[in-house]
């Protein structure tokens, strides 16, 4: 413990004080203090005050939609993300590099652009919507539309978490399974899947966390009908526009706490994976 500062003091590399100082100051000013403000404000409301806001039907409905749609979207990505990662890592086909790069599009495309594009696509006369309308499926301006946007925004998280794990997966494990008489299906379900499952879960959690707070790509396609297709972030904005700072803070604080819990979960998951894979060859 006490040896640490001594070693630091002896380091020959300069600039520790100034770089760490700037880092901490900047971090505090931009992120920590403003974020703490929310909790300070929320604390002023008291638990009952927060509960009163959050338990109102409109807020509850929005939380249900935001978390529910994010969950479904993350689940869809939890299935298709690993499939995409598998195809990119294991197979060779024309244009692979192009398709692989395209997976990051939801990261790169500004959310508002994604939002209006998805809306146009799934609106009743859009390219995809025109085929769904006759089937009685309405996507745009319904909770289903929120799910579509959440899936879009979360896809890269799962693919990019699973991909490196699959790339590093030892070919020998599969060979060993085959030599022991396992069929390809048994090898995939009993050997490969357990190996990448932590990565899938991590990707799932990241996609979920992102989708819960997502605003830009969702509000256009959601339709924003109170109690039906109104997401929580939009509700925060509405409360702000009504100068209901307390209400906005209560909702935002609730969302933050839930997101941080999720973040903690992700970190624990990653630490667990690192430990398990630490020395096992």
């Amino acid at each position: 413990m006490s040896a640490t500062p001594v070693r630091r003091a002896r380091s020959v590399i300069p600039g520790f004080g100034i770089t760490l100082g700037f880092t901490l100051t900047y971090l505090s000013l931009i992120v920590l203090i403003p974020l703490a403000g929310i909790f300070l404000k929320a604390a002023g409301l008291g638990f009952s005050g927060i509960w009163e806001v959050v338990s109102s039907p409109r807020v509850l409905a929005s939380l249900k939609l935001s978390f529910g749609a994010a969950l479904v979207g993350a689940a869809i990505n939890g299935v298709f993300g690993p499939l995409l990662a598998w195809v990119f890592v294991r197979y060779r086909f024309f244009g692979k590099r192009f398709f692989d790069a395209a997976v990051d599009l939801p990261f790169a495309l500004p959310t508002a652009v994604a939002g209006i594009a998805l809306t146009a696509l799934y609106s009743p006369n859009g390219w995809i919507g025109q085929f769904l309308t006759p089937l009685g499926i309405k996507v745009a301006y319904t909770p289903l539309g929120v799910v579509v946007a959440c899936t879009f925004i979360g896809l890269p998280f799962v693919v990019r978490t699973v991909q490196p794990v699959l790339e590093e997966a030892e070919k020998e494990l599969e060979e060993a399974a085959a030599s022991l008489g396992a069929t390809r299906w048994q090898t995939i379900t009993r050997v490969i899947l357990p190996t990448v499952l932590p990565a899938i879960l991590t990707g799932f959690a990241l996609a979920f966390a992102r989708a819960v707070g997502e605003y830009g790509s969702v509000i256009f396609i959601a339709g924003n009908l109170p109690m039906i297709s109104e997401i929580t972030p939009l509700l925060i904005i509405i409360k702000l526009e009504e100068f209901d700072y307390a209400g906005a803070t209560a909702v935002a604080g609730t969302m933050l706490v839930l997101s941080f819990a999720l973040l903690l979960l992700i970190n624990l998951l990653q630490a667990w994976v690192r430990r398990r894979n630490a020395s096992a060859r």
Binding site: P34, G37, I38, E214, L240
Partner: peptide, 17 residues
């Protein structure tokens, strides 16, 4: 941290201040 904060909340914190 900022990655796990909803963008709307990110805006909100500055409005509060």
């Amino acid at each position: 941290l900022p990655f796990s904060v909803s963008p709307v909340v990110a805006g909100l914190i500055y409005v509060l201040i």
